[in-house]
Every structure is written in structure tokens, then in C-alpha cells.
């Protein structure tokens, strides 16, 4: 079984298990051949891992065109150190920013709306330093500016009708989502689409009611060009904030896909879980004529 078959099977399998409830419909986009749907690489050199996953998807130039304004959106949610694996690995973020710059991006913005105090998160995650160490004026780490949340109508939403979304995320030509794969009390795991919560304003706690549906709804408006899941270190318990090194496992894996659901689905297997075990958009998101839509 090759990788592609595996993923297809995983998705079909999860769809099969959830036939009784709203489900992910497997459509031609998954079956279609062409450039890889999803790339997975393992190894201890994380910069190389980023390069390799991008290469198997046709290289960053496939996603970032010269002059593009790019957002790289890691998870910087917590006042935790890189070893504690609560935030995206700064090495991975830096490598992605570098790749985007090399592909000709005119600007690469890195930000997240944090859960703990912003400055502590940006500093202690190592992400601010990592991006600044590039010494490139085009690469910027910015704190959230509350003036930039704009109300967005979620036309195809089932559980959400409007949402305040960060302007820079909406305006970007390319949006690269870089979650870290980790344990999450409510939703089982937090992966790609959960990471999109970092661009919404207001009282985000509300997202937790019916989180699967709401994340699916959110995915109809925040659509990443590329999802790169950082599973170099994964948090197996006490997530999403962690804090205990005993809960951190070295997985040395990075996966990337243009399809956020496929990326999330594959990532569940790193935790010995099945895709349908996460209270999730996997059940409720449907690919329909080139767009993700929510189903009930």
C-alpha cells in the first residue's frame, strides 16, 4: 500500500463509519491523481523535512507566486517553550517563511491570536526570535491589532452566521496554516482547522459549543492554500497547553497538504486514533464544486 492509497483508505473508512451521521463525502478531488494530495516526511532534521514535504507537493513556488502577500499562521497560543510542544516548532515556522520568501513573496506575516498573554507567547514560543533572525524586512511577526477584526458573513455556515475575522488573514494572497499536532481535551486533537481559531475575534470560547460544526463553518471562509502540520514533537496528553515534558513525544514528522481535511485525517493516525474519533469537521465538511461546505 502506498501513501496515497493509505490516505484514501483512511478517509473512506472514516466516511463509512460515519454514514449514519452527516459525513465527509469523498469526491473526485481525492481520487484525482496529479500532484500528491498529501506529503509526509519523517526525520530528525526539521528544516529538511519542511523542504521535502514542499518538494513532494511541487515546491513552494507551486503555492506562492512572486509578489504574493503571504500569511504563515502557526500556533502561538501558549506561554510555553518549544520543548513543551504547545506551540508550533519555531524551526518549522522559520523554514516555511524562508521558503515563501525564496518563492518571491513580497511580504510574509506571522501572527496568532494567543490564549495566554501575547508578548509572553511570542517570546517564549521562540517564534518571534526565529522569524526575526531571518533579518528580512519582508518577514514580519506582528501582534494582533484589535482594530483589524472585521465581521464576515458565513454564508454557507450551519452553526455560525457571522464571525469576526482578522483582516490580514482574509487579505493575504496565500494563507499557510501551520498547526502543531497535539492532544485537546474537548475535540480529542487539535490540528489544522482548529488552528484557524487564531484568526477569529470576539469571545472564542463560544466556538466550543458544537465545535465540529463551527470549525467546519469557519473552514468555508478561512481556506488555507496549504496546511503544514508540525508533528516534530507531539503532545499526547494535557493538551492543548501541556507543560509537562513527559507528555511530549518526539515524532519527527511533518505533513503537508492543500487539503486541510486530508492533512488532519492523516495526522490523527500519529496518535493511534482514527480520523472519525476527533469531534470534527471530518464528519461535517463536504467538498463541493471546488469549495468546502458544511453539511449537517
Amino acid at each position: 500500500m502506498n501513501r496515497r492509497e493509505f490516505i484514501r483508505d483512511v478517509l473512506l473508512w472514516s466516511a463509512g463509519l460515519t454514514l449514519s451521521i452527516p459525513r465527509l463525502t469523498i469526491t473526485e478531488s481525492f481520487a484525482a491523481s496529479g500532484p500528491s494530495l498529501l506529503a509526509v516526511e519523517k526525520g530528525p532534521d526539521h528544516v529538511q523535512l519542511v523542504r521535502r514535504v514542499l518538494a513532494s507537493l511541487g515546491g513552494m513556488k507551486n503555492f506562492v507566486r512572486p509578489g504574493d502577500r503571504v500569511v504563515v499562521k502557526p500556533n502561538i497560543g501558549w506561554d510555553r517553550s518549544p520543548e513543551q510542544a504547545a506551540n508550533t516548532n519555531p524551526v518549522v515556522v522559520k523554514a516555511l517563511v524562508e521558503e515563501a520568501l525564496e518563492a518571491g513573496a513580497s511580504r510574509v506575516l506571522v501572527f496568532d491570536r494567543t490564549c495566554n498573554e501575547e508578548r509572553r507567547c511570542y517570546t517564549n514560543s521562540g517564534i518571534a526570535d526565529a522569524v526575526q533572525s531571518l533579518n528580512n524586512k519582508k518577514a514580519r511577526v506582528e501582534y494582533i491589532d484589535n482594530r483589524k477584526f472585521v465581521p464576515v458573513e458565513i454564508k454557507r455556515g450551519k452553526s455560525l452566521t457571522t464571525m469576526e475575522i482578522y483582516k490580514d488573514a482574509l487579505d493575504a494572497d496565500r494563507y499557510i496554516n501551520v498547526p502543531i499536532a497535539k492532544h485537546h481535551g474537548l475535540s480529542g486533537l487539535t490540528l489544522g482547522l482548529k488552528n484557524s481559531m487564531g484568526v477569529i475575534g470576539g469571545r472564542r470560547g463560544m466556538m466550543h459549543f458544537n465545535i465540529g460544526q463551527k470549525l467546519a463553518d469557519l473552514a468555508t471562509v478561512v481556506q488555507p492554500t496549504l496546511t503544514v502540520i508540525d508533528a516534530t514533537k507531539i503532545l499526547m496528553a494535557n493538551g492543548p497547553q501541556g507543560g509537562d515534558l513527559k507528555d511530549v513525544q518526539i515524532a519527527d514528522t511533518i505533513l503537508a497538504s492543500t487539503d486541510p481535511v486530508a492533512a488532519d485525517a492523516y495526522a490523527t493516525t500519529l496518535f493511534d486514533m482514527r480520523p472519525d474519533e476527533i469531534e470534527s469537521r471530518l464528519r461535517r465538511t463536504k467538498w463541493d464544486s471546488g469549495k468546502w461546505i458544511s453539511t449537517r
Binding site: G185, L186, H208, Q241, G243, D244
Partner: peptide, 20 residues
């Protein structure tokens, strides 16, 4: 009967002081 546990997510102690 609404799923939530936002509190548990944010609890900062390495071994969480909020269980469920």
C-alpha cells in the same frame, strides 16, 4: 448538555487541575 470545557483547555498546571 452543551459541550464546552474551555476551562479545561486553558488550565495551565502541567497536570491539569481540571479533569472531566
Amino acid at each position: 448538555g452543551i459541550p464546552c470545557i474551555v476551562c479545561e483547555e486553558h488550565c495551565p498546571t502541567p497536570e491539569k487541575a481540571i479533569g472531566f
